[in-house]
Measured scan of single mutants.
Amino acid sequence: EWCEALHSFTAETSDDLSFKRGDRIQILERLDSDWCRGRLQDREGIFPAVFVRPCP
Rank of each mutant, 00 (worst) to 15 (best):
R39A: 08
L31K: 12
W35D: 04
F19T: 02
S8P: 11
W35H: 13
G22Y: 02
S33V: 10
D15F: 10
Q26R: 09
F47M: 07
D32N: 11
R39T: 07
D23E: 08
C36S: 07
F19E: 01
C36R: 04
D42K: 11
S18A: 11
L31M: 12
G45S: 00
L40P: 00
E12N: 14
D32M: 04
P48F: 08
R43Y: 09
D23G: 00
P54I: 12
F9A: 05
I25P: 02
K20P: 01
F51D: 03
V52H: 01
A49Y: 07
F19S: 01
F9R: 15
P48I: 00
F9K: 12
W2T: 05
T10R: 11
R53G: 10
K20E: 13
A49Q: 09
D42Q: 12
R24A: 08
L31W: 07
L31V: 11
D16E: 14
I46R: 15
Q41P: 02
S33A: 09
E29H: 05
A5G: 05
I25Y: 02
Q26S: 02
R30H: 12
F19G: 02
C3G: 09
T13Q: 11
D16T: 15
L28K: 01
L17N: 02
C55P: 08
I46N: 13
D16V: 13
D42H: 10
L28D: 01
S18P: 08
A49L: 11
I25F: 04
I27D: 03
D42N: 11
V52C: 08
D16K: 15
F9G: 02
K20Y: 04
R24Q: 10
A11D: 01
R30S: 07
S8C: 11
L40K: 09
F9H: 13
R24G: 01
C55V: 14
S33D: 13
I27R: 03
D32C: 05
R24H: 12
E44Y: 06
E1Q: 09
R53M: 09
S18L: 00
R37L: 10
Q26V: 05
S8V: 04
E4R: 04
C36Q: 02
I25W: 00
I25R: 00
C36K: 06
S8A: 12
R24P: 05
P56G: 13
G38T: 00
P56C: 15
D15H: 11
T13S: 14
G22R: 02
W2M: 08
P48T: 00
S18V: 04
D15Q: 14
A11M: 06
D23C: 00
C55Y: 10
A5L: 01
C55S: 11
S8K: 07
R30D: 00
F9T: 04
E29Y: 06
E29G: 10
D42M: 03
